[in-house]
Each structure stands twice: as C-alpha cells, then as structure tokens.
C-alpha cells in the first residue's frame, strides 16, 4: 500500500508519502503533528511564539506554557551550543549581535529571561522539528517506510526505501538545476539543504540569512547540506554551515565528509539562472 497527503504548512508545501504497513490514520496523525508545530512556532499569525516575542521584544521575561514551544526551546539550546553558536533563532538585525546569548532559558522553571530586546524566528528549524514529530507519530502508528518533505529542502525518511536499502536523493546545484551537487542515501534520517542562491531565495516571505556573530546579512553564494538522525539537528547544522567562517566550517564539518557538505560558488556564478535575462 502507498498513500500520500499534501498540505500547506510551515510556510511551504508538505508531502507525506507512506509505503506498506501502518495504521490507516497514520498520515492524518502525522499531518496533525506538523500543523501543531506550525501553530506553536509560527511568527506569521498569532501563536505561542508571537506572544512570547511580544514580551521578549519589550525586554521582559516570560513563562513558557506551551509544551511544543518548550520542547523547541530545549532543542534550540542544545543546538546553539552544538553549532558553536552559529545556529541562532534570535539573530536579528534589529537588535544587534546579542541573539540567543542574550537569552537565559531555564528548562527547570520553564522560564525565559532576556537582558535586552530579542525576538525568535524558528525558520528552517521549525520544519525539521515538525518532521521529527511527524516521523515519531508514523513510527508509533506502525509505519516502517515513509518519506516526508517540507518544501523539498527539508526531507525526513522513516525506515528503508520500499524497494529495500536507503532512500536515494540527488541534491541539485542551486544555480544549475540540471547538475547534481551530491547524491545521498538516507535510512531513518533527515536531510536539510540551505542556500543563499538559487530558486526561491528571492521569494517574498524568505527572510535574509543573518550571521549571529555580527548580525550581518549573509550574501556569499553558498549551499550547505546536512544529514542527521533528527531533522531539527540537520536544519541547525545546514544553517550554521551557511553562516560559518572558514575556521568554524572546519570545526562543524568535524571530518564528517559523508553527512555534512558545503559548496561555495564563485560570485560571478551567483546569479539565479531560473530568472529571465
């Protein structure tokens, strides 16, 4: 049996493909899990995150009552450290370079305190985090083979490919879509692709990538790919690699040449080629 659901969430198009075993309502339940994350983490309509941001932007602390938001903050705290501070959902040009380091999150009391105005924007992390929760739901519903996509830059797979072995993916060159940057096989893993160039980078709702160290906009033409057991981790790593300088790139790649990739492009080639002219 193979079935699929497609819906809009997390500001993009989400597809959930299930193959073989699993409860009939597995995909519906996975969709609900993703939508719940969207409801909690979105900053584009009223949510637990926008309520929190109102207080943070006023320089005030807040209790975290929403369980999903709390879990997300726990994950972010870990990922901020894991990425040497380069994954930073509080990086914001309006407030300078303080970012997440200006936030004190106490998971024991579920409170967040700030030393100055900040605001959270979960961006790609939210997609990975949502896919993780959807994968957990699918597994709980007996699904052994599934592929989940959030906008095709965030992919998660459950189990093996329905024909056996890993799920094969070919990451397209962002400037020359007919060329392949790298091919990967995933099993019970997630992949995140981040890019400063290529299709969609000028889309109206796409926020500029901010370098947390100085709150500057990252404009160098670069594409990064990160694979991890967890989608949230993959998203944080691909984002960190995108903004990292040479020294930190080395440390982030950490010799893992099969699961983390960074592609720098000459500036002259950094013209999106899918536009006319």
């Amino acid at each position: 049996m193979a079935d699929v659901v497609r819906f809009a969430s997390m500001g993009t198009r989400v597809e959930l493909h299930r193959f073989g075993a699993g409860d009939d309502d597995a995909l519906t339940a996975a969709q609900r899990a993703i939508e719940a994350v969207d409801d909690a983490l979105t900053i584009h309509r009223p949510s637990a995150t926008t309520a929190l941001n109102e207080r943070l932007m006023a320089g005030q602390g807040a209790a975290i009552d929403d369980a999903l938001l709390f879990d997300a903050l726990v994950a972010i705290e870990e990922l901020h450290a894991l990425t040497l501070g380069l994954f930073d959902p509080a990086a914001d040009r309006r407030f300078g370079p303080a970012g997440w380091s200006g936030i004190a999150f106490d998971r024991n009391t579920a409170r967040i305190e700030v030393s100055q105005s900040v605001a959270l924007d979960f961006g790609g992390f939210g997609k990975g985090f949502a896919l993780d929760r959807a994968c957990a739901v699918l597994r709980a519903k007996g699904v052994v083979s599934a592929c989940l996509s959030a906008g095709e830059s965030s992919i998660a797979v459950v189990g093996e490919h329905p024909l056996g072995g890993g799920w094969p993916f070919a990451i397209a060159h962002p400037l020359r879509p007919d060329e392949i940057l790298v091919e990967l096989e995933l099993t019970d893993e997630s992949v995140s692709i981040s890019s400063t160039v290529g299709a969609g980078t000028n889309a109206p709702e796409r926020a500029a990538m901010i370098r947390p160290t100085d709150a500057s906009i990252v404009s160098a033409p670069r594409c990064t790919v990160a694979v991890d057991r967890l989608g949230a981790h993959a998203e944080a790593m691909s984002t960190a690699l995108l903004v990292a300088n040479e020294d930190r790139v080395e440390r982030l790649l950490n010799g893992d040449w099969t699961r983390r990739f960074l592609f720098d492009f000459p500036r002259g080639a950094a013209i999106p080629i899918n536009q006319p002219g």
């Binding site: 193979a2 790609g124 095709e152 072995g165 299709a199 999106p272």
Partner: peptide, 25 residues
C-alpha cells in the same frame, strides 16, 4: 516505486513557497 524502479529523487534548492507574487526582477 509502483513500477519497481529505484532511482535518486532530485531535491534541493530553496524551499518551495506558497503562490505569492513572483519577485524575479
């Protein structure tokens, strides 16, 4: 999969966005 074929799925590039106005110059 339905036809028993396994080949790489092309993905990547920036995230698909909802059908908002295209802003290519």
């Amino acid at each position: 999969v339905a036809s028993g074929k396994k080949r790489a799925v092309p993905i990547g590039g920036a995230t698909w966005f909802a059908e908002l106005p295209v802003t290519t110059p």
